[in-house]
């Protein structure tokens, strides 16, 4: 199955994913090692912990033209740093509610928990999320504020 789409390439749909070093980045690596095919529109940035995500990052990413932003960390309870993902969960939940005020469709934003062994879960998540963003189309860069 060829998941890439030249139209997407032309339109430049891009998804930025912030993955924690210990679980989700490992999960994405595991998916690679298992050769699980994934849409090529995703670009991954490695961060130490999902708790390290400043809400500024996803906002800035949208501002600079990302069509979707995904943040993923260890499952609650399994954080490598004991409790970083609890902070992330609360912060990102609030951020999700805040996005419409910024003129950003909250469907373009997702946070999730993927462990280092969940290669298939990662593939399923990223495929589904990319499909969703594809449906929504490229983000409009400038929103007129009246």
């Amino acid at each position: 199955m060829d998941i890439s789409n030249t139209l997407d390439q032309k339109n430049g749909i891009k998804i930025v994913a912030f993955l924690c070093n210990w679980c989700s980045y490992g999960g994405a690596d595991a998916a690679g090692t298992a050769r699980l095919k994934q849409p090529p529109q995703v670009r991954i940035i490695r961060i130490p912990c999902s708790g390290w995500i400043n809400p500024l990052y996803p906002l800035k990413a949208f501002n600079e033209g990302a069509d979707g932003v995904l943040i993923s960390g260890c499952h609650p309870g399994d954080c490598h740093y004991a409790e970083g993902n609890y902070y992330a969960r609360r912060r990102l939940e609030v951020l999700g509610h805040f996005l419409p005020f910024m003129g950003i469709d909250p469907q373009r934003f997702r946070y999730s928990w993927i462990s280092a062994t969940e290669a298939q879960e990662w593939q399923a998540l990223i495929t589904e999320f990319t499909e969703k963003i594809r449906e929504l189309g490229p983000i409009k860069k400038h929103v007129e504020v009246s």
């Binding site: 890439s4 390439q9 994405a28 690596d29 690679g32 699980l36 994934q38 090529p40």
Partner: peptide
């Protein structure tokens, strides 16, 4: 990371190369 997160998960050479350049 252009292996686990690029070459191994894509089959379209053009898309994979563009992604590798981005990375």
């Amino acid at each position: 990371n252009i292996r686990e997160q690029c070459s191994w998960i894509h089959s379209d050479k053009e898309a994979a190369t563009r992604k590798a350049i981005d990375l």
